[in-house]
Structures are given as C-alpha cells and as structure tokens.
Computed example of a mutant assay.
Amino acid sequence: MTQIVESEERFPLITSEALDELRSRIGEPFERPAPHVTEATADSIRHWALGIGDENPLWLDPQYARSSRWGEIIAPGTFLYAFDRVVSGYVSGMPGIHAMFAGTDWKWHRPIRLGDRIEAQPVLKDLLELKSNFSGRSVKQTYHVSFVNQDGDLVSEADSWCIRTQRDVARERATRESVKPRVWSADEIAEIDSHYENYERRGGTPRYWEDVREGEALPMMLKGPSTVTSFVCFTQGWGSLYVKAHGPAFEMFRKHPALGIPNDLGVPEPPERVHWDNELARAVGVPAAYDYGPERISWLGHLMTDWIGDDGFLNRLNVQVRRHNIIGDLTACNGAVARKWVEDGNHYVEVRLLAENQRGEHTAIGNAVATLPSKG
C-alpha cells in the first residue's frame, strides 16, 4: 500500500528536515532571480500602471505631472513589485512545495521619481508552521525587503509572505471544487462597462484632511472580470517570477529541477502556469486559473491613490490575500475611513480596505495609511 501511495504522489511533501534546513537561512543573503525593472523610466512606469488599470496622468503625462506638487512624473508605490522577485512571491528552499503568495505590508518613505535607480535588499525574516484545512501541513514564509535608491535613501520597506502548501494534499482537500468560473451576460458586461466609463479619480483636486470624516466610504472601484489576458497584461508590467523561454528556460530548469513540471506534451513549464493553465490550477486545489496576489494588492493601492488625490501620499499598505481570484471573477475594491489624526505636523488618515468578488467572498483585506494636505 505504501508503494502505491508514493507512486501516485506527483509532488513532494513538507518535511521537518526541509524546514530545519530553511530556518538555517534566516537573516542570510541568498541567490535570487534578476529583477524585471532596475530603473523608473517613463516606459517601465507606464507598463506597470496600465498593467493594473491605473491611468492616472501623474504617472503617465509629463506635462500634467510638472503642474503637480511633485513637479515631475512619479510612480505608484506598488511599482516596486517589479523591482524584486522576492517581494512578489519568489521563495527559496523546499523545492517542489507550492508557494501561494499571501500578502505584503508596504511602508513608503519617499516617492519613486522618474529616473530613480532602485536596488532591493531582501532577507528571509521568519518561518511559521501552520495547519491548514486547505493543504494539511503548511508554512508561512516571510521576507523583509528594503528598497534603496541611487542616493542611498530608503525609498520603501516591505514584509512579504507566501504560504507553502503540499500540492497533492491541497488537491485532495480542496474546499472550492464546486466553484465554477462565472459566465457573464451581455447586459452584465454593459453594466460593468458603464461603471468604468463613469468612474472618476480625485486627481489634482486636493482632498483636505479637514474634509474627511471617520466612517466615510471610498468610491467603489471595479477590477475585472479577470481573464488570462488581464493576467498577461499585469505580467507585462510586473515581469513574473519564472516566465522564461527557450534556452534561458531550460537553464532555469537545470538549476532548479523542481520548477520544471511537464505539461501534456512532456515539455517542462514552471508552476507559475497555474495563472493560465486550468489543469495545473486544479492540481494544486484551485478550481481554475487564478490571478497574481501582488496584482490584487496593487488594485487596492490604486483605490487609495485615486481617493487621496495627487497632493496626498500613500505611506502604508498592508494587505492579506485571502482567497483565489479565478478567471471570470469580478472584484469590487472598497474602503472606509477608520480614523484620522495629526502627528509631528502631518495629517494622517487610516482606511480599512476590502476586495470582494461577485460571490460575496472577501478575497483580500487590509488597511492603508495616507498623508493628506491640510487647509491649515
């Protein structure tokens, strides 16, 4: 019986030995893939912004940006996902154990300006063993990443974490097997289109701290319905984790054999193809191809920067990714002001954030802190 079970398992299991080996790496430097972006150019900023559906001219239009308080194009803070694979979900250790991106706690100290050359400095911060109804034994793997510009200034720092899950166990215990991708009617698509057409950002009109009320709701922002095309659009700006082709792909698989999962044609492809391959997604316990976690966090960042306006500054964005956003899902991004206060002459607001799909499931939750201009 044991031999039969072992032969049926496609993927490795989490072992105490593997966990102990990975714990020995905490605080140590490690080899990681090259970043997708190293400099904030007009092109790289545009690709990122449009990849998350953010058309704010502050990121895209030099003439408009020159008239703002910043005096030039700046980038949305979540653009830093493109500067480092680790903050985006790349994990080392325990080969063959699936990694599901689960959240980031961003803190920004200064804006990302056109021409900034930014280096990421990641380190493994913590490992926490969990018991999961989804996949049995699982591990929360957290990295701390600092982002430093060409002048040595700390631009941002982030704690980012993944949940490492046992793929075969997840498939057997998947709790969402009955969920099917949503099919939308023409009338429903027209209604979604109307929302996009009539949506308005705050833009250059200041949102003064004095005018904000605790409990105030932010205007809803829609994202989706999600498609493989929208995932590809995001990947063009972000760069992905393991998407490589031809010789570079085979070199990656030689160095990291567990990354090469044969497809139906016997050709190795990375586990990242769960984002466009329904079969592999189901093999790890998800009913269909699903989005990238950093994408959804960036949507909530987009909600915040549109609400605070071009004169505000997003200081913090702490979001947990709670559920998969599968193809066909429509996400409503919402927020409500939790509190406001003044500290060291700065006027802050804290906002509770929620991403919810058409089934009423909360797919991401979090909070944000922003600085607003004051009438005083």
Rank of each mutant, 00 (worst) to 15 (best):
M304T: 06
V212W: 09
V369P: 02
H256A: 12
Q121T: 11
A174V: 02
L114Y: 00
I326S: 05
R69T: 15
N263E: 11
Y196L: 08
W276P: 00
S226N: 10
L265K: 09
E21D: 14
L50V: 15
A40T: 02
H47I: 10
H324P: 03
G215F: 11
E197G: 06
N315M: 11
P76A: 13
E188R: 07
V342G: 10
L330R: 09
H246S: 15
G89M: 01
G376R: 14
E269Q: 12
L60V: 07
T165S: 00
G309D: 14
G309W: 11
I297V: 13
R316V: 10
E39M: 13
A49D: 12
G51E: 07
E31Q: 13
K375L: 13
H324D: 05
V351R: 02
L58C: 08
C162K: 02
D311Q: 14
L222W: 08
G89F: 01
G71W: 04
A288P: 00
P95E: 07
V286T: 06
N334W: 10
R182G: 03
S146D: 08
K140Q: 02
A186E: 15
E28V: 09
P62F: 13
N357I: 09
G312P: 05
K125C: 04
E28R: 14
V337E: 08
G360V: 15
A370T: 01
P271L: 00
D187F: 10
L124N: 09
I73L: 08
A75T: 11
A40K: 00
